[in-house]
Design a protein around this nucleic acid. Structure first.
Length: 165
DNA sequence: ATTAGGATCCTCT
DNA sequence: GAGGATCCTAATG
């Protein structure tokens, strides 16, 4: 899909899944103030601050109350590139949206978007015109459930945060 | 190509 | 009080 936030974004090329019975998931230990949105209705944004520095964007998935989400890890930038360059102070296309923190900065994600519907402004989502090939592998940067192959990438994309093996 | 350290702060125990 | 779904820079092999 193509994801835009206030007209800025691109093609989603990398994600990770997090589920309720998943020790690496924020929802693993049940609802808390931070993860409350994960337990709400699907189709909303779950935004959290990573390492005190980076705002990361997730899509809430599955049914209300389940506590699942998909972390957006990388986009191929296609829209609003000048805005991204300014926000990131970085012109190299591969360094604009390839990693969760970079993506958040390039799209100006912050806590004000937490809980917002993904089918309304400022979000815009458009499905790909044709089916695509997806590869999977272990998730990145976690210490539990490290063998679950729940990282997904667009096959052959040059905009992945890291290659798949 | 790989490693190490720092920045920075919220969340939950 | 500890630790994190990270990124950047600098130093080393």
């Amino acid at each position: 899909m193509t994801l835009l936030v206030n007209g800025v974004g691109g093609v989603i090329v990398e994600t990770e899944a997090y589920d309720r019975e998943d020790p690496a998931s924020h929802s693993f230990s049940g609802p808390t103030p931070r993860n409350a949105v994960m337990f709400g209705p699907p189709g909303r944004a779950y935004v959290y601050l990573s390492y005190g520095i980076h705002w990361c964007l997730n899509f809430v998935c599955r049914e209300t109350g389940h506590g699942a989400g998909v972390l957006l890890r990388a986009l191929e930038p296609t829209a609003g590139i000048p805005s991204m360059v300014e926000r990131r102070r970085q012109r190299e296309p591969r360094l604009l949206c390839s990693d969760p923190g970079r993506l958040g900065q390039a799209l100006a994600i912050d806590h004000s978007l937490n809980g917002k519907r993904l089918d309304r402004a400022p979000f815009s989502l458009r499905a790909a015109a044709m089916p695509v090939s997806v590869v999977c592998g272990p998730r990145i940067g976690i210490s539990k459930a490290i063998d679950h192959p729940w990282r997904f990438g667009l096959a052959g994309s040059r905009y992945l945060s890291r290659p798949f093996r």
